[in-house]
Nucleic acid binder design. Sequence first.
DNA 1: AATACAGTTGAACAATTGTTCAACTGTTTG
DNA 2: CAAACAGTTGAACAATTGTTCAACTGTATT
Lengths: 116, 116
Amino acid sequence: MNKFTCSVDQVHKDRVEAVRERLEDPETTERMSTLFSTFSDPTRLRILLALQKMELCGCDLCEITGATKSAISHQMRILKIANLVKSRRQGKQVFYSLADQHVVELLKTALEHVKE
Amino acid sequence: MNKFTCSVDQVHKDRVEAVRERLEDPETTERMSTLFSTFSDPTRLRILLALQKMELCGCDLCEITGATKSAISHQMRILKIANLVKSRRQGKQVFYSLADQHVVELLKTALEHVKE
DNA sequence: AATACAGTTGAACAATTGTTCAACTGTTTG
DNA sequence: CAAACAGTTGAACAATTGTTCAACTGTATT
């Protein structure tokens, strides 16, 4: 017997095949899981929720989240790579804002879910 | 100077206050991040996407994801605790299905996002 | 009653990851 | 030009977490 799977002859070969055909491709699921990962960290999530209210600089985000400048900077890098936020420099400060409307929609759907 | 935050006297006390008032409470953000975490694992995500197509037993999920029975079982436990899937036993097998419609909506929104 | 199959459980292990620390760059102000 | 402030960077550390392994439970079949 195969160690990694069950003996499929006995269980729903038809169903497995049908699901396989309709299932999203590996690249898509990989992207989706990465997207969810980005939203799953408490600090990043609060950053996104805060930026949903208004544009904010790094120090504002430190104050709001209670994280250090370094921690915020590391997280903003991840959020920028994920194309979830954009930034603009104004003098000594860097202002961050949400990159697109999809973010808002995902936050809204999740918010509705946790509030039942 | 406070090691954990910046010297706020110099940066947007008004903005920080405004965001603080409108920001979702800690319990809500905690729940949201937990929800996103549950969706962020590739195996769990593919399980959810598969169950979106039809009800499946544990062995079907082994075949579809390529994971062992043990790994699937561990993940199903997490998904059940999170109230994302429900299960029913039929003889030797346990059939799983999505617990509610919110899951579908979240998957749909994320899917739209990654497909641009 | 014995065997086979589906699924569960808990401990151990490896991999990932968020934060901290220290040193750094860039911009403004005195 | 020097000091102060905002932010960046990379290495190190600790915590979390998904998988594996081995032993187990429960159900059906012979």
